[in-house]
Amino acid sequence: MLAALCGAALAAGAQVRRSSRNVQPLTRRPDTGASGVQSDNTGLGVAVPKKEPAAETVTRVAYLGPRTGWGIVKSASPYYAPDGKRLGTLPGGTLFTYNNVKPSSRNDVLVCLLRRGAKPEGPFLLDCTDIAGYEGDPATVDAELVAQLQRYFTLNGRLAERRAALEEAAYAKNPHFETARDAQHAYQASIEKAADMEREMNGLTGARKSKALDALRAFKYEQAALKTQADRAAAAYKAWKDAHPLDPAALAADSRLQALRAEREEARKPVAHLIPDAP
């Protein structure tokens, strides 16, 4: 088990052990199904066409921490139903426990129960790259320590949100911004619709299943056209963006961003040894 002993003071002599994860590329056959968990923290929500990976390979992250434990969402993160359907976004600082780790079409996902109220919520799926994982049970850990970790990651999420808002305001000057954003949203919506259609089809039999399969195939042609439009719009957006780069100094001068960064740094001090290093 790859976990580093962090030596924190805990209730009843318990220990917090920070979970490690493998960030080395793993090679496997790509998942060609319509369903699957996707992590899409892309800031503006505008995807730029990427260079195709080598045939028959994908790059993904495997979680090598324990199969059960607890954790905190590091920054805004999508979360999913067990069947892979996206349910929304969780803010940084969200506490959860998990009881299993599963592979997905992108990275390993943790099967989680959210701890946001009196009763656990779930199960849900979270991408392993979006969380800070720890061994054991948060109920056995000093409550103040858990609260300090939550405060740090809450501020981390707010800082990321503020930075994204500033960047979006600057990128909105791009004449291709709205076209690229809308085209990307339409394509992403088509991915979710295709996944829903496939799940529904898999629950049918006989003639009804054949009819649903025909409908899914027809929709795939529409989806391909949406992807082409999204790729073209994103390429135009990126070309303008590359020709008009953001001024980092202007972003850094934002008073709210500076205040959040200072708050996060203060919150980091008592739990620095429990915060995972950036990959």
Rank of each mutant, 00 (worst) to 15 (best):
M1W: 06
M1N: 12
G7I: 09
L10S: 15
A12V: 08
A12S: 13
G13F: 04
Q15R: 12
R17C: 09
R17T: 09
S19H: 11
N22Y: 02
T27Q: 14
R28T: 09
R29S: 14
P30W: 03
D31P: 00
G33M: 09
S35L: 03
G36Q: 04
A47Y: 10
K51E: 15
E52S: 13
P53R: 11
A54L: 13
T57F: 11
T57M: 12
T59L: 01
T59K: 08
R60T: 15
L64K: 13
T68G: 09
G69N: 03
W70Y: 10
G71P: 10
K74E: 12
P78W: 05
Y79N: 11
Y80S: 13
Y80K: 10
D83P: 04
K85N: 11
K85Y: 11
R86K: 13
L90I: 08
L90S: 05
L90E: 06
P91K: 08
L95V: 04
F96W: 02
N100I: 01
P103G: 05
N107C: 12
V109M: 02
V111L: 08
R116T: 13
A118W: 00
A118P: 02
K119N: 15
P120W: 03
E121V: 04
G122Y: 00
L125I: 10
L126Q: 06
C128Q: 04
C128N: 11
T129S: 07
T129D: 00
G136I: 05
P138K: 02
T140S: 10
D142K: 05
A147H: 07
Q148L: 05
L149F: 04
Q150M: 13
L155F: 07
R158S: 07
R158C: 02
E161C: 03
A164C: 00
A165C: 06
A169F: 01
P175N: 07
P175E: 03
A189W: 04
I191P: 01
I191V: 15
K193I: 05
D196S: 13
R199Y: 08
R199W: 06
E200P: 01
G203Q: 04
G203W: 00
L204I: 07
L204M: 15
T205Y: 04
R208V: 07
R208S: 14
S210R: 15
K211S: 11
A212V: 06
A215F: 05
A215N: 12
L216A: 13
L216W: 07
A218K: 10
E222R: 04
Q223D: 14
Q223C: 11
A225V: 10
A230C: 06
D231I: 02
Y237F: 15
Y237I: 14
A239L: 11
A239E: 15
A243C: 06
P245Q: 01
D247I: 11
D247E: 12
P248T: 08
A250S: 09
L251W: 01
D254M: 04
S255P: 14
R256T: 15
R256N: 14
L257G: 06
Q258K: 15
A259M: 09
L260W: 02
E263K: 03
E266P: 01
R268Y: 14
K269M: 06
K269L: 11
P270E: 02
H273T: 12
P276C: 04
D277Y: 00
D277R: 07
D277Q: 08
A278N: 10
P279C: 05
